[in-house]
């Protein structure tokens, strides 16, 4: 995403995280079922409000990638959060300056 934007400007946000997204439908070498282990939630907050969120299921490809559009209002922080099925959370924060 850009570092600066004009008021009202629409810009693209691209996010990606390294995760196997093990579907739970695979079997290992000895026929044992490989347990499901996936990221379930992605959230993006901007100016204290949720601007975009997503729920993932096993049909989302490994190393989940997302691109979406946001409208710039004011300067502020973007908080990106991923949460896996065990409640583990990864967080990234990026600032945006709006002129």
């Amino acid at each position: 995403m850009p570092e600066t934007a004009a008021i009202g400007e629409v810009f693209e946000v691209k996010v990606m995280i390294q995760h196997d997204m093990e579907s739970g439908y695979r079997r290992g070498q000895y026929g044992e079922r490989i347990p499901r282990n996936i990221i379930q939630h992605f959230r993006c907050r901007y100016l204290g409000e949720q601007v975009f969120a997503s729920e993932f299921f096993p049909g989302v490809a490994a190393n989940p990638y997302l691109s979406f559009l946001v409208r710039a209002q004011r300067s502020g922080e973007f908080v990106f959060e991923w949460e896996d099925q065990h409640g583990k959370v990864w967080r990234r924060t990026v600032g945006l300056a709006v002129q």
């Binding site: 990606m16 390294q18 190393n63 990638y65």
Partner: peptide
């Protein structure tokens, strides 16, 4: 570069 999943390993 922002969509190429290999870049996750490069960054790491």
């Amino acid at each position: 570069d922002f969509a190429n999943p290999g870049m996750l390993w490069v960054e790491e």
